[in-house]
Amino acid sequence: MGKHVQSRVGGRDIALLVVCAAILALLFLVGGTQSRAPLSSAETRFVELSESGLQIVPASCSSYAHYQGECSNGYAQSSYGGYTQGGYSGQCTPQRICGWGAKTNMVVNSCSGAVIENCLLQGANWRCLGGACVPPFAVAFIPFTAIYPNDEGGTGGSVSFEASGHLQARPALLKQGATTRLYWNTENAESCIVTEDNPDIDDSWGLESSGESGQESSEIRMQTIYTLTCQSVPDASPATVTESVTVNIIPIFEEQ
């Protein structure tokens, strides 16, 4: 009888011990992670706004010192040409595209990223455009909307006009001692300068563009020729581009 009672008590002991152990395990499980407050970082809710206000979300995958390549092995690497997700279905058809990052001057295979052609081998300033190597561009003139102060026959304020990009003087016919404005706008130039041949004045602008308001001349008392000289980037043809515009003075008629 005594043994029987001891046996019943021992069974209960074990059951209670199991309950206690389970409670403790649960507490350890929960307590291990919940006993501290979450630590927010500079990255957690970080977004940057684009120019139009869209939210750009950076990541930081391989910043980890023990990085194992988790973010480097995309689908195409393991099943090249056969991925079918995210709207990029079917085979990858290789195309010639311009590389990016460190390969901006190279033509690469759009699927594998292999370099097909290194444009820099053609010349120092060759570059990739539309999947082909192209020589350095010559100087070009870019049309733009220019602004001119409306004090010549107008009623005040400013007027705008479409400038061709080539060197223009406005007005090109002046009363003696008046000023004019010079307009120009170029691209692919290494450098540009506008000079004049009038010994009485000293106008000179080393700019690739006059800006929309142009550049105002000094007071002009005799016919003056303004010249725009642009240097092309190395290896481009022609090496220099020159344009001139003449500003004339309205003759003064004296009654006899």
């Binding site: 927010s40 990255e43 957690t44 990541a59 930081s60 995958c61 910043s63 980890y64 990085y67």
Partner: peptide, 19 residues
Amino acid sequence: SQAYPGNDPLIAGDGVRAL
């Protein structure tokens, strides 16, 4: 958490929601 290693795993839910 894989995309933002080094961040507290307890804020991963917040990060997913922010994205």
